[in-house]
């Protein structure tokens, strides 16, 4: 496969959050919009203590990557893990399968690209994503809504990859916790790092995304079980999404069958009703 991928090594991350800043700066996603409950200075939310280093509190239409700080009580004492949260660019992408307009689709590198001009605002992508990544601007009354998420720096007019540049987050990372490359090579690299971690005593070290959802194009080297880092073990696109996707051929089939059946009825009935008379 000529697919590319990002490898995120949670054990090299210092949570500097340069990636968050670089992503916002490159994609013109600043300033950070106010959230419910924020106090404002004009339009700008005032900083306040949420009891966590995490900032912003969540992904949003203008926050495509954020770092999470996770405290975990291990047998060897308290651990403080840093992990990244953003689009995982799945191979079996629920969002791509449900998008009615093709705004979300896989590109040649295997990433899930997003054409914002095609977004209808239906919201199905967010409902289908096992990682709950898509975020929306929305007017609940009119239904007007637009999604946004990490495009792996392939957004129209802001495409770094086409210019041979690394994604903004990768470029900013001071410890090379983030690298981009050929996916197969990064799978090997990830496996080596996991073995090294296991040799150091991290018995649950794991390469997340090697096989999940057909293979993620953002893989994580993690020092512990996925749940500890806020990831689902064995993530799946819900069967409900498959059921919705099968309704199109069913509905089309019923429609065509009805038209053909009625056409047949017309041919037969016209001949026979006239005969009766």
């Amino acid at each position: 496969m000529a697919d590319k991928a990002i490898l995120f090594d949670a054990t090299l991350c210092t949570a500097c959050r340069g990636c968050q800043a670089a992503c916002k700066q490159w994609n013109e996603n600043d300033p950070y919009p106010a959230d419910w409950g924020d106090r404002l200075d004009g339009d700008t939310p005032l900083a306040h203590n949420r009891g966590s280093y995490e900032n912003p509190a969540d992904l949003s239409p203008t926050t495509w990557v954020k770092m999470e700080f996770r405290e975990y009580d291990t047998s060897g004492g308290m651990a403080w893990y840093f992990t990244r949260r953003a689009c995982m660019h799945c191979t079996e992408a629920g969002c791509v399968s449900v998008c009615p307009s093709g705004a979300l689709r896989h590109n040649a590198d295997g990433f899930v690209s997003f054409d914002k001009t095609l977004c209808t605002g239906c919201g199905y992508c967010g409902e289908a994503c096992p990682f709950e990544v898509p975020r929306y601007t929305r007017n609940i009354i009119t239904g007007q809504s637009v999604m946004d998420k990490c495009t792996l720096c392939t957004s129209a007019g802001l495409n770094r990859l086409n210019e041979g540049l690394e994604p903004a987050c990768v470029k900013s990372c001071p410890t090379d916790a983030l690298v981009i490359g050929e996916r197969d090579a990064l799978v090997s690299e990830g496996r080596q790092r996991v073995s090294a971690l296991q040799a150091q005593g991290y018995g649950n070290a794991y390469l997340y995304g090697e096989k999940e959802l057909g293979g993620l194009h953002v893989m994580y080297v993690i020092p512990d079980k996925p749940e500890v880092l806020g990831l689902k073990s064995d993530p799946k696109v819900s069967g409900l999404v498959d059921a919705v996707n099968v309704m199109w051929p069913i509905g089309a089939g019923l429609g065509v069958a009805a038209i053909l059946g009625l056409g047949l009825n017309y041919i037969v009935a016209r001949a026979n009703v006239n005969k009766e008379k």
């Binding site: 998008c99 009615p100 307009s101 093709g102 705004a103 001009t117 095609l118 977004c119 209808t120 605002g121 239906c122 009119t142 239904g143 007007q144 809504s145 637009v146 309704m247 199109w248 509905g251 089309a252």
Partner: peptide, 22 residues
């Protein structure tokens, strides 16, 4: 139908049909 039939999906881009539907 525009949302349902894949080939017509792009016609719903921008969300005008969402207002009409409502």
């Amino acid at each position: 139908l525009i949302i349902f039939i894949p080939a017509f999906g792009p016609a719903a881009a921008g969300g005008v049909t969402r207002i009409i539907h409502r």
